[in-house]
Write a protein that binds this DNA or RNA. Structure first.
Length: 248
DNA sequence: AAGGACTCCAACCGCCGACAT
DNA sequence: GATGTCGGCGGTTGGAGTCCT
């Protein structure tokens, strides 16, 4: 039977399967799941669901735990650093959401996937270009700098974003912030190399300052490409620019 | 104020690989 | 080797919330 059984026995027949609850989780179910995992640990999801008395599939329990209930899940907006990191990682790995999520502590693959579909693809469609192109990535970086520069004026102070800014250390990938990347000088984004063992010079250098300041006339037409300010700012998390400035 | 359009995200679905029997 | 079960992954969808007219 259940090779991973936990010593409890519930029916496993078709009747029970059809009796499974679906749809949004209730607070009571959340509490049951959290308490059970706190006591017994996670894994063996099917038997966990049965033993906990949840009329949910193991898959559903696993998903609820990983995407929502896990204590280290970060809620709130994707930070600017995370936005750029997602761009970088997606250009490298494509729709390998779980792999990308591994480099964004506290973010789930589901969240990143949703973010990509709702924000990035929308913007890319607006620009009529592929989000994995150097062109698109450069555009994001260019505008990052531009917004940051604008926000660096005395009147440009912003409130603190609700999202946290930490957790990109610990050996994890970390894109440069204006605060430490010395944008005005000769720095390129080699600093943003993700992991030492995955160095990809070509990718890492894609976003060099030079390429951003002379993107083949691309930005000369940005007003025609949906970079009119509001559109872009509403799609991307502009709060982070204010935050980056405060880091200085 | 109302209701239609749009956005966002939690949850489900189907598939696949790993592993046990 | 065949079969069954499980966990994990990426794609998709339904509905709640928000925006717009």
């Amino acid at each position: 039977m259940d090779a991973h059984g936990r010593g409890c026995s519930f029916g496993t027949g078709r009747d029970e399967e059809e009796d499974m609850r679906r749809g949004p989780w209730t607070i009571e179910e959340d509490i049951i799941l959290v308490n059970y995992i706190a006591k017994h640990g996670e894994g063996r999801w099917n038997s966990l669901a049965r033993c906990a008395g949840l009329r949910r599939t193991g898959k559903s329990c696993r998903l609820r735990w990983l995407n929502y209930l896990r204590p280290d899940v970060r809620r709130g907006n994707i930070t600017l650093e995370e936005q750029l990191l997602i761009l970088e990682l997606h250009s490298r790995w494509g729709n390998r959401w779980s792999k990308i999520a591994q480099h964004l502590p506290g973010r789930t693959d589901n969240e990143i996937k949703n973010y990509w579909r709702t924000r990035v693809q929308k913007q890319a469609n607006h620009l009529k270009c592929d989000p994995n192109t150097k062109q698109f990535k450069d555009a994001m970086l260019h505008l990052w700098i531009r917004f940051w520069a604008a926000s660096a004026t005395p009147s440009g102070s912003h409130h603190n974003p609700t999202t946290t800014h930490q957790n990109l250390t610990d050996g994890q990938a970390c894109l440069p912030t204006p605060a430490h990347s010395n944008m005005g000088a000769t720095s390129d984004f080699r600093d943003s190399d993700l992991h030492g063992n995955e160095t990809n010079q070509q990718t890492a250098q894609v976003s060099s300052l030079e390429s951003m300041t002379s993107p083949s006339g691309y930005f000369n037409h940005e007003h025609n490409l949906g970079f009119g300010g509001d559109t872009w700012a509403s799609t991307w998390n502009m709060e982070e620019f204010g935050f980056a400035q405060q880091q200085q």
